[in-house]
C-alpha cells in the first residue's frame, strides 16, 4: 500500500517539475524536487523502503530527461548513500542540522550533474552558469526544502492512517 503512496507522490512531483514549474520564470533555479524525496527517504525511512523508491524514481527520471541515461539513477543512489552515511554519525533529523543536510544533499546531486556535464563537454564554459545555478538551488532548498520534507512526512502518515483505517473496517487487522 505504501507503494501506491510513493507512486502518487512521484507522479505529482514529476508533473510539477516538468509541466508546472516551467511556466513560472522565477522558479528557473529551483532544485530537483524528487531529490528532496530521496533526502526524506534517506533521513526518515528504512533502507529497504527508501532504496526501492530511489531506484524506481531514478529510472523514471532518466527516461524523461535529456541527460545521459543513468545519470539521475546514479546521482540518486549516491545521494541516498550519502544521507544514510551521514545519519550514521550525526543526529541530522533535528531542526538545526536538517536544513544543512538538505542543502548539502541538493548541492551533492547538482554537483554530480555539473561534473557529468563538464566531463561530457570540457570545452563548454558552463562553470559560471553552473555555479550561479548551484547557489540559486541552495537558496531555494534552504527556503522551501523543509516544507517539502514536512509535506512528505505528513502525507505519508495520513496515507498510512487512511490505509489502516480501511483495513480495520474491512475486518483485516
Amino acid at each position: 500500500m505504501i507503494a501506491v503512496y510513493y507512486i502518487m507522490v512521484c507522479l505529482a512531483l514529476l508533473v510539477l517539475q516538468t509541466a508546472v514549474v516551467p511556466y513560472f520564470a522565477f522558479l528557473e533555479g529551483l532544485y530537483d524536487l524528487t531529490a528532496c524525496l530521496v533526502i526524506y527517504l534517506g533521513l526518515f525511512r528504512p533502507v529497504r523502503e527508501g532504496a526501492a523508491v530511489v531506484l524506481a524514481m531514478g529510472f523514471i527520471m532518466d527516461t524523461l530527461s535529456g541527460a545521459p541515461f543513468g545519470l539521475y539513477l546514479i546521482s540518486y543512489i549516491w545521494l541516498f548513500i550519502g544521507i544514510r552515511w551521514v545519519i550514521g554519525y550525526l543526529r541530522v533529523a533535528n531542526t538545526l542540522l536538517l536544513p544543512l543536510a538538505l542543502v548539502s544533499g541538493i548541492l551533492l546531486q547538482s554537483g554530480i550533474f555539473l561534473t557529468a556535464v563538464t566531463l561530457l563537454d570540457p570545452s563548454a564554459a558552463i562553470a559560471p552558469t553552473g555555479l550561479k545555478l548551484l547557489a540559486e538551488q541552495a537558496l531555494w532548498a534552504l527556503t522551501t526544502g523543509l516544507l517539502l520534507l514536512g509535506f512528505f512526512g505528513y502525507t505519508r502518515d495520513r496515507w498510512m492512517r487512511f490505509v489502516h483505517g480501511r483495513l480495520q473496517r474491512n475486518g483485516n487487522p
Binding site: Q17, T18, E28, G29, T34, L64, S65, G66, A67
Partner: peptide, 13 residues
C-alpha cells in the same frame, strides 16, 4: 507537454 526535469539538459516532451 513537458520540459526536462533537469536544468542542465534541454529537452521537451
Amino acid at each position: 507537454i513537458g520540459k526536462d526535469p533537469s536544468p542542465w539538459f534541454k529537452t521537451v516532451m
